[in-house]
């Protein structure tokens, strides 16, 4: 059984199992309350699933891409929960969960997953199909772009069906991890996918105060 946490969009927490599917899940689309609700959601999911932290076989963390402040809350929670429970952290790319869910609900063939990156930019990932076990096959890395870039005819994945998502399901994130583990597929790197350098204004030296 796995605990899964994703705050790359709203906040989503779930307890999943390969055989039983999603056992408990909590979600909130609000992107301003990650720090408030992630803790209660974890507790509620564990209680509803009747599972103790020590009985989990791993903690799945959604690595994004996602806006920084929120994304970090979930990754910090997943990493530290895993440490506290003495269980491994399983990093998964959040877009993979979105694609997995879309294929599971019947989509087939190419797919571009798009989420909001704020500041009039978007995050995207491209998938060719779902494989035999239902895992999405990512062929275009999570990237950052202007909305118009994806409409450009010259773009590598131009014309592919596009899915704009506002939420990520931790249940689906967890199932991606379960399937990846069961079928020996690699996990993501344990690194947040910010895809953007930190905002800094380099100082030009002190401004003159006297005229």
């Amino acid at each position: 059984m796995l605990l899964a946490i994703d705050t790359s969009a709203g906040t989503s927490v779930a307890v999943v199992d390969l055989a039983r599917g999603v056992i408990a899940e909590r979600g909130e689309a609000d992107t301003m309350r990650h720090a408030e609700i992630v803790g209660p959601f974890i507790l509620e999911c564990l209680q509803e699933a009747h599972v103790a932290p020590a009985d989990l076989s791993g903690v799945v963390g959604g690595m994004g891409p996602g806006p920084f402040t929120g994304l970090r809350v979930g990754i910090a929670s997943a990493r530290v929960f895993a440490l506290g429970a003495g269980t491994p952290l399983v990093p998964v790319i959040s877009h993979d969960a979105i694609a997995y869910g879309h294929y599971r609900r019947g989509h087939s063939g190419p797919l571009v997953v798009v989420t909001d990156a704020r500041r009039r930019e978007i995050y995207w990932s491209a998938y060719s199909q779902a494989d035999a076990v239902g895992l999405p096959v990512r062929v275009g890395q999570p990237g950052l772009a202007k909305p118009a870039d994806l409409d450009d005819e010259g773009w590598l994945h131009a014309g592919w069906p596009r899915l704009d998502a506002a939420t990520v399901s931790a249940g689906e994130l967890g199932l991606v991890a379960e399937l990846s583990y069961a079928h020996g597929r690699p996990f993501a790197a344990n690194e947040p996918l910010y895809l953007r350098s930190p905002d800094v204004t380099l100082s030009n030296g002190p401004k003159r105060v006297s005229r």
Partner: peptide
């Protein structure tokens, strides 16, 4: 943004333990 990292982590640790 800095506070939120600690808050999220502390809650997760409290629940895990």
């Amino acid at each position: 943004g800095a506070l939120m990292v600690g808050v999220g982590a502390a809650k997760a640790l409290a629940v895990a333990l």
